[in-house]
Computed example of a mutant assay.
Amino acid sequence: MTALHSLARGPSIEFDQVSLTLGRTTILDNVSFKVQPGTLHALVGPNGGGKSSLIKTLLGQMPHQGQLSLQWPGEPGVIGYVPQALEFDRGLPMTVDDFMAAMCQRRPAFLGLSRHYAAAIGEALERVGMQDKRKRRMGALSGGERQRVLLAQGLIPAPQLLVLDEPMSALDEAGIQVFERLLGDWRQAGITLLWIEHDLEAVGRLADRVTGLHRRVLFDAHPQQALTPERLLTLFSTHPRSADVVSGSVA
């Protein structure tokens, strides 16, 4: 890990007793863990366990109690976000280029790509294997192809912190290979990656560290210590046992 940290361009992230209550429902309960700079940190847990809510607190989209801090190696950098899915009217005559223009530039998309972003958009689409479908309507793309476009928009501008919300969920095998290649590129560049993922095999193979979240932190450890049958059973059970039984950092 030392080599990764020494090359890190991304920040560390510290969640310190972060809580979130909506009405009478506790969404997050005193969540505390730290993401090391320049590492791939996975967040796993059941649906409704608070993973996406925690991400929204990080992105400033939800109120919370407790402290959440980012420590940048220099000046604050760019935070990128790749959502799980794209909700839009598939009947809209919006091409891939139109979508990328709308997401990446201030100039109205109907005026076309600005010269400032054209090269970067072309490079991003090429990296995800969508360069030859730039003129296709977004509504005509498969779910996996749309997910690749979402990955491409997460590359512009180049982020130092990238938040990924189940990016593999709609990808086919070829798309998964593209995504894993991007992960390697991002890690080599020293980007901090916070990755929500349900594919535990991929998490065990690719992540530097894993946090299990079911309203509260049930474990925070390296994958080989985190993804044991006992811990996963506790994480995905309807009524998790006391966090004292399975939580705590493991070196």
Rank of each mutant, 00 (worst) to 15 (best):
T211Y: 03
L141F: 08
Q36V: 04
L113H: 10
N47I: 03
S114C: 11
M94A: 14
D244C: 01
M103H: 01
R106D: 11
F110N: 01
D172L: 02
S52A: 12
T39D: 05
I27F: 04
V78N: 03
H214D: 14
R115S: 12
V217G: 06
T234W: 06
V178I: 14
A152N: 11
E126G: 15
F110V: 12
I79K: 10
V31T: 04
P11W: 00
L213F: 09
L150I: 10
G190Y: 06
M103A: 13
A152V: 11
R107M: 04
I79S: 02
G212R: 04
F33Y: 09
A226I: 00
K34N: 14
Q160D: 05
M1V: 07
S249R: 03
F110G: 06
D98M: 08
S6M: 06
E14A: 12
P108E: 07
I156F: 07
G66E: 08
I196N: 14
H239V: 15
G204R: 03
A174S: 10
E173A: 15
R205V: 03
K34S: 15
V217H: 04
L162Y: 01
Q224R: 12
V246P: 00
L233C: 00
G45S: 10
A207E: 05
F99G: 05
P73V: 01
F236M: 08
E126R: 14
N47R: 01
L151I: 14
S53P: 10
T2L: 13
G91N: 12
P240D: 07
H214R: 12
L235E: 06
R216T: 13
V96Q: 06
K34T: 14
L92M: 15
A202Q: 11
H239R: 15
G66P: 09
R127P: 03
F15I: 11
Q177R: 14
A101Q: 03
V82R: 04
V96T: 12
R134H: 04
L113Q: 12
R148Q: 12
C104K: 03
